[in-house]
Design a protein around this nucleic acid. Structure first.
Lengths: 194, 194
DNA sequence: GTCTATAGAGAGATAGAC
DNA sequence: GTCTATCTCTCTATAGAC
C-alpha cells in the first residue's frame, strides 16, 4: 500500500461519510477527493478502483460496528438482554456522527446487481457476523432453537434498517417489540421440548 | 401525454425490467431505449426526465402489486389467513417474470439521498398502502391492537425484502414464522384486554 | 408521432512534474 | 508520496429532419 496512513484515514473518512449516506453511485470519486483534501493520483496509488475504496470503507465500518455491538452486549445484565443488545447497538450506531442513512452493507448490496467481488465479500461478512453472533448469544437462552431464532432476529434487524428508508422517524421500538415476543415464544417452546 | 399508448407500454416494460433489477443509477436511459426499441426523442416527448419515467414505472408496478395482494387475500379462508396473505402475495410477486431483484420501492428510496418529489411520493404511497391495508386486515382479528400489529408486520415484510439482498436463497418461511408468532401474541393479549 | 445526430456535462482513471 | 492537468468514455437531454 504505497499511501500514507494519515492520508488513507482521510480518504476512508470521506468515503464512509459520502458513499453510505448519499449512495455510492450518486457520489463521484471527485467528491470524496475534495472532502478528503487528497488528489486523484494519490487515491489511485493506494486503491486500484472506486470499488476497492468502497470495500475498504466497508471493512473498516464493520470493525466499528462490531465494537459498538460488543460494548452493548457487555452492558447487558441477563442472557436475555444480551440477545436484545443488538437493538441497543443499532440505536447507538445510528446516532453516531458518521451514521449511514440506513445500512452501509445492505445499501452497497442494493446498488449492484452483480457486485464486485470485494464488495460482495464485505456484505457477506456482515451477514455472517450477524447470523453467527446472534446464534451464539441465543444459545444459552434457547439451546437447540438458537439457529432458528437467530435467523428470525436477522430478518428483524434487516427490517429495522429497511424501515429507515420508509420514513425518517423510525427507532428500534417496533423491532424490539417483535424480538421480545418471538424470544418469549422460543423460550416457552424450548421449555416444552425439555 | 404526446406519446402513443403502445410505445408507452414498451417504455414502461423496459424501464421496469431494468431499473428495478439492475438499479436506477446503474441503468443508462439508453439501455431502456434500446430494450424498448424506442428513440430518445420519443421518450422525452412523453416524460420530462429519467426520474419521471422511474416514477411512472413505480406507479404501474404498485397497481400490479395490489392486484396480486388482493387475489391472495381472496384465496384466504379465515381472518387470520387474510392477514398472512401478504406473504403469499410477496412470494407470488417475486416469482413473476418481471420480479424485481428485491423491492422496487425500497430500492428506489435507497438510491436517492434526497429523492425527486415524484419518486418520494410513489414510495410513500407504497408504504401507506401496506400500513393501511395491514391495519384493516388485522382489525377483525385483534381489534384495537390492529395499528400496532400492522406496524410490526410492515417491518417484517420490509425485512423479508431486505433479506433478499443478503442471499439469493430466501423465501418467506422465516417472515411467516415471525408473523405467526406475533399474531398469536396479539390475539392472546386482545382476549386478555376484553 | 417518431427518428438520427449531437450538444454539453460529468464521470473514472492516468501521465508526468515536483 | 503527492500534486496538476488531462484523456477518454458515457451519460442525459435536445435540435431538426421525415
Amino acid at each position: 500500500m504505497a499511501i500514507r496512513a494519515t492520508t488513507e484515514t482521510k480518504l476512508l473518512d470521506a468515503a464512509d461519510a459520502l458513499f453510505f449516506s448519499a449512495g455510492i453511485g450518486a457520489t463521484p470519486i471527485d467528491a470524496v477527493l475534495e472532502k478528503a483534501g487528497v488528489s486523484a493520483a494519490t487515491l489511485y496509488r493506494g486503491y486500484p478502483s472506486k470499488e476497492a475504496l468502497v470495500a475498504a470503507a466497508l471493512e473498516r465500518r464493520q470493525l466499528a460496528w462490531l465494537d459498538v455491538w460488543d460494548a452493548a452486549i457487555e452492558r447487558a445484565a441477563s442472557p436475555r438482554d444480551r440477545v436484545l443488545a443488538v437493538f441497543d447497538a443499532l440505536e447507538s450506531f445510528r446516532l453516531r456522527a458518521d451514521g449511514a442513512r440506513w445500512c452501509a452493507f445492505l445499501g452497497s448490496a442494493a446498488e449492484y446487481a452483480d457486485p464486485p467481488e470485494e464488495i460482495a465479500r464485505a456484505v457477506a461478512r456482515d451477514t455472517a457476523a450477524l447470523r453467527d453472533r446472534l446464534r451464539d448469544l441465543a444459545e444459552p437462552l434457547v439451546g437447540s432453537r438458537a439457529a432458528a431464532l437467530a435467523e428470525e432476529l436477522l430478518l428483524i434487524v434487516s427490517g429495522d434498517l429497511a424501515m429507515r428508508l420508509r420514513g425518517p422517524d423510525s427507532d428500534t421500538t417496533v423491532a424490539r417489540a417483535i424480538a421480545d415476543t418471538i424470544l418469549q415464544a422460543h423460550e416457552r417452546a424450548g421449555t416444552a421440548d425439555a
